[in-house]
């Protein structure tokens, strides 16, 4: 982690993971900018973090639970009205190429 350059391939791989269709110009720009930003971010490794536990959260909370009680649901009409496409009371999407998870 020495602020190595982010290649166009890296950018394209990450863009696919993030479902972002980038233009060629964006790929070039991001490979430039991410390199600069990550170089700065790499300063985190300058601090003595060995043996320091990670913090996910600023709060020491534990066991926040709710009772198993039924609450209100949304009106289906309202839900489907927000969707770009609906059919047969379901939300419609283009075919799912690829595989089931």
């Amino acid at each position: 982690m020495t602020g190595e350059r982010i290649t166009r391939d890296d950018v394209e791989h990450v863009a696919r993971l993030a479902r972002l269709a980038l233009t060629d110009d964006e790929v070039a720009l991001f490979s430039e900018q991410l390199s600069v930003i990550l170089e700065h971010a790499a300063r985190v490794s300058a601090l003595p973090t060995e043996g320091v536990p990670p913090s996910t959260h600023p709060l020491p909370l534990r066991n926040v639970l709710r009772p198993d009680q039924v609450g209100p649901t949304l009106d289906r009409g309202e839900v489907l009205a927000q969707a770009p496409e609906a059919e047969d009371d379901r939300i419609r999407v283009p075919r799912i190429f690829g595989e089931e998870q």
């Binding site: 982690m1 601090l47 913090s55």
Partner: peptide, 12 residues
């Protein structure tokens, strides 16, 4: 290297 270390810095 990135996320994990940043979380440790957060602890610091």
């Amino acid at each position: 290297a990135y996320y994990g270390t940043a979380q440790r810095v957060r602890t610091l």
